[in-house]
Simulated scan of single mutants.
Amino acid sequence: MSVIVRKPGLYTSIQDLGRQEYQHIGIVKNGSIDQLNHRIANLLVGNNEEEALIEMTVSMPTIQFTEPTLIAITGANFPAFRDQERISPYKIQLMNKGETLSFNDAHKGTRGYLAIAGGIVADEWLGSKSTSIRLEMGGYKGRLLQESDEIEMCRNYTPLQKKLFENLEVSKSASWGLDQYTLALNYFSDIFHIISGEGVTHLSDDDLKTLESKVYKVSNRFNRTGLTLDGEPVINSNFKNQPFLSVKKGSVILNKENQPVIMLNDHQSLSSYPQLGTIASYHIDKLAQKKQGSKIIFKIINIKEAELNMKKHAQFIKQVKTGIRYKLTEELNK
């Protein structure tokens, strides 16, 4: 049995946490861009947090279920509906046979994540089910989801998931969930840390300090490869015949107009454009939810500051995961 895509949405694909060890040969990581919301969605339905799920972007899909299953929706604030009934994100939901999941436009954010208990069947390539659109590998036939696609469910349910089916048979929705305000500080700030000394080329300390005084906005050129920002040029110099340097997720480069471009999961491996540095890893998930017109303000930090912030961020994520696991244990013991 399967879930059927009735409307594909704008940019809907199957993603896990990506390919981990192949960038040195030019194969980028792919995977969910907002990995925190990916992990939370899977944890809520009792999956391993790395399990493949459906990443949905800007315009959401409509999906019909051909058998009962458990789902969780996380990410951008897209109002969600089970048939005509409004349902809550960040909660476990029971979908029955024939029911349809649909969405309205998001109030905030760009990307949503749909986890299905037990996981989904997808093409695996280089140890990952993530869709590589550019190479047409992984996920569902190596492409975006289209109308009438049928995605098989693994249905390898654990004792916990079987108990959740039993507990939600009548209510269809868990009485608890993750409070979205818990994640607010992680997502709603417009300030992004750039780590100095990582990939910086041809820019003085004064150039980088000037960068902090500018306010940029996300242009209409944003996708899984990266975000191009609108605003004052960072510098007025033209660099020619530059050597190619490696690019990674979070690299901030300057395009021909000297506007910043922030690389995301499907970035190219090399670039000859000047680099400003690298967005701190703990701000990448926030970056994934910025839409056209969103403000971006850069703050330069050093590696020591980044490490301290990363430890705080890791502790925050640990607390979120611990809370979810505690509530799931309560469900198992009902």
Rank of each mutant, 00 (worst) to 15 (best):
M1Y: 13
M1V: 14
R6G: 07
P8M: 08
Y11N: 13
Y11V: 03
L17G: 05
Y22I: 03
Y22G: 03
Q23F: 14
Q23V: 07
Q23I: 09
H24L: 11
I27W: 11
K29R: 10
G31Y: 00
G31C: 02
L36V: 03
I40L: 06
A41Y: 03
N42F: 05
L44V: 02
E50G: 11
A52G: 04
L53F: 02
M56H: 08
V58L: 15
M60L: 15
P61Y: 02
P61Q: 09
I63V: 08
Q64F: 04
T66V: 13
P68K: 10
I73T: 01
T74M: 05
F78Y: 12
F78H: 09
Q84R: 14
I87S: 06
Y90I: 09
Y90Q: 01
K91N: 14
K91S: 08
N96L: 14
G98D: 05
T100P: 02
T100I: 12
H107G: 10
H107F: 12
K108Q: 14
T110D: 11
R111C: 06
R111F: 02
Y113V: 05
L114P: 01
A115H: 03
I116V: 11
G118M: 05
A122K: 06
D123H: 12
D123F: 00
W125L: 12
W125H: 06
K129I: 12
S130C: 13
T131R: 01
T131C: 06
S132F: 00
I133H: 04
G138D: 06
G142L: 02
G142W: 00
Q146R: 09
M153N: 02
C154A: 15
N156K: 07
P159L: 09
P159D: 07
L160F: 02
K163W: 11
L164Y: 03
E169L: 13
K172V: 07
S173F: 04
G177Q: 13
A184T: 10
Y187D: 04
D190W: 01
I194W: 07
I195R: 11
S196W: 07
E198I: 11
D205Y: 13
D206W: 03
D207C: 10
L208H: 09
K209L: 14
E212D: 01
K217F: 05
K217G: 07
V218Y: 07
S219I: 12
S219H: 08
S219C: 04
T225P: 10
V234I: 09
N238K: 15
N238D: 15
Q242M: 15
F244P: 02
L245W: 13
K249C: 15
G250C: 00
G250I: 03
N255C: 03
P260K: 04
L264A: 00
N265G: 00
L270A: 14
Q275W: 12
L276Q: 00
L276K: 08
A280I: 13
A280R: 00
I284R: 01
D285R: 06
K286S: 11
Q289M: 05
Q292H: 14
G293H: 01
K299D: 01
A306T: 12
A306G: 08
L308D: 15
L308K: 14
N309A: 14
M310K: 14
K311T: 12
K321R: 08
T322P: 10
T322L: 13
R325L: 15
